[in-house]
Structure formats: C-alpha cells, structure tokens
Simulated assay, not measured.
Amino acid sequence: MEPTIVDGQGLIGVTFGRVRVGQIRTFEHPDRPGFWMVKRVSATDGGSMIVESDNRDIRTEDSHSFGPVDTTGSYRIVLRIPRRWM
C-alpha cells in the first residue's frame, strides 16, 4: 500500500459502518488464514468487496488474483500511526 501506508507503520481499524469505495481496509487473505492484508476498496455490493493495491508499479496480490473478499471480518483503517512513534 505504499506510498499511502509504509512498512512498519501502525494502524487502527474499526468494524462498524458500511464498506465504501475508497476506504482502506484490512482483512484476512482469502487463501492464507492468519495472513492479513491492507488494500483499498474499489467496488462493493454490500456483502463483498473488490480490493486493490495503491502501488500499481509492483506486482501485488489483490482481487485481480483472488477475487472478491467477504466484508465480514474486515476492518476500516481509521488512523495511521507514524513509524517514528512505533
């Protein structure tokens, strides 16, 4: 998700509210339990979402490779903590 979020940066997420296009959300990888991803929502139908990386210059995994993601269990990122505070 660089340059929006940098490696090692802290994040705070919440579960309440609707999933909306443009939000940054974290969720478990659909094929790798326990592996959490941070992506931007590019489309949603309420029950699932299409997620994409902000950095198109590098090869990343997103909905182009694993399809739509269930919105249940995802968190909306509401606060990014600067690395210098970590």
Results as ranks from 00 to 15, higher is better:
I12V: 15
F66G: 06
V78N: 02
F16M: 09
P82E: 03
M37P: 01
P3D: 09
V6H: 12
M49C: 06
F27G: 00
T15Q: 13
M37V: 11
G22D: 07
R20P: 00
Q23R: 03
S65Q: 13
T4V: 15
E61C: 08
S53I: 02
S65W: 08
V21E: 03
G22T: 06
F66N: 03
T72S: 12
D7M: 09
T60V: 12
P33E: 02
G22Q: 05
D62E: 11
R56G: 00
M1N: 06
V19M: 10
I81G: 01
D45M: 11
F16L: 12
E28A: 09
G13Y: 07
V14W: 10
I58T: 11
W36S: 00
S74I: 03
R56K: 15
R59C: 12
T26F: 12
V69C: 09
T4I: 14
F27T: 01
S53P: 04
L11T: 05
F27K: 00
R18Q: 12
R20A: 09
V78M: 05
T4A: 14
R76P: 00
Q9L: 12
D7C: 08
D7T: 11
S48E: 15
K39W: 07
T60L: 00
P3W: 07
G13Q: 06
D62R: 02
T44C: 10
T72Q: 11
G67F: 12
F16N: 04
R25P: 00
G10C: 13
F66S: 06
E52W: 13
T15D: 14
D54P: 11
M49K: 03
D45P: 07
V6A: 08
K39R: 14
G67C: 10
I77R: 03
W36P: 00
P82S: 04
R80T: 10
T44S: 14
